[in-house]
């Protein structure tokens, strides 16, 4: 086992353990904070795959943006610990529904893993990813890029509108 593998398993373990804590913890705050480690581990895996731009963007967007938002939101909710979701018959139904969905997703994902065509590229030119990403975004994927920009603009305007509405 060389250094690369050790690091890979290290990050993989971080992701798995913290993801489990996210799901199983009774305290929403703990869940939110352990998301930090999940994101960190995923970013580490990206970097290991020579996708350092994606890795750093992962930290930037998920840790710096989304996680902060989640924590802010959770902190404002009054019930931080022991949010009960398994009371009565509806709770049982929730379990059943969640189980079915999880099972289906698992089957779907494993089918994808088995049958998917994996693109294996060479990892020689690590130092140019950002240039390539930039060029591709501005040429081949310009439509997707612009669509995302417009979506963001709409979200912006919507947020401003909601924020300004008088109570």
């Amino acid at each position: 086992m060389d250094l690369f593998e050790i690091i890979f398993y290290f990050f993989a373990a971080i992701v798995l353990v913290s993801a489990l804590v996210v799901v199983l913890s009774k305290n929403i705050m703990y869940s939110a904070f352990s998301l930090l480690f999940t994101f960190f581990g995923v970013a580490g895996l990206f970097v290991l795959l020579n996708a350092d731009f994606v890795g750093i963007t992962q930290i930037m967007v998920y840790v710096g943006g989304i996680l902060v938002l989640i924590i802010f939101g959770v902190m404002i909710t009054t019930k931080v610990t022991g949010v009960d979701i398994k009371e009565g018959i509806s709770g049982k139904l929730q379990y059943a529904g969640a189980g079915i969905i999880t099972l289906l997703t698992a089957i779907f994902l494993s089918l994808m893993f088995i049958n998917g065509k994996w693109i294996t590229g060479s990892s020689t030119d690590v130092h140019a990813t950002i240039h390539q990403i930039g060029t591709l975004l501005m040429t081949k994927y310009i439509l997707a890029f612009e669509a995302a920009a417009i979506l963001l603009l709409i979200a912006f305007i919507g947020a401003a509108l909601i924020g300004r509405r008088k109570a």
Partner: peptide, 17 residues
């Protein structure tokens, strides 16, 4: 790494958490 500036900017978000 070739993303130094971006990296420093991103890593700051850990401090926020």
């Amino acid at each position: 790494i070739n993303l130094g500036l971006f990296y420093i900017f991103a890593i700051g978000s850990f401090a926020v958490i």
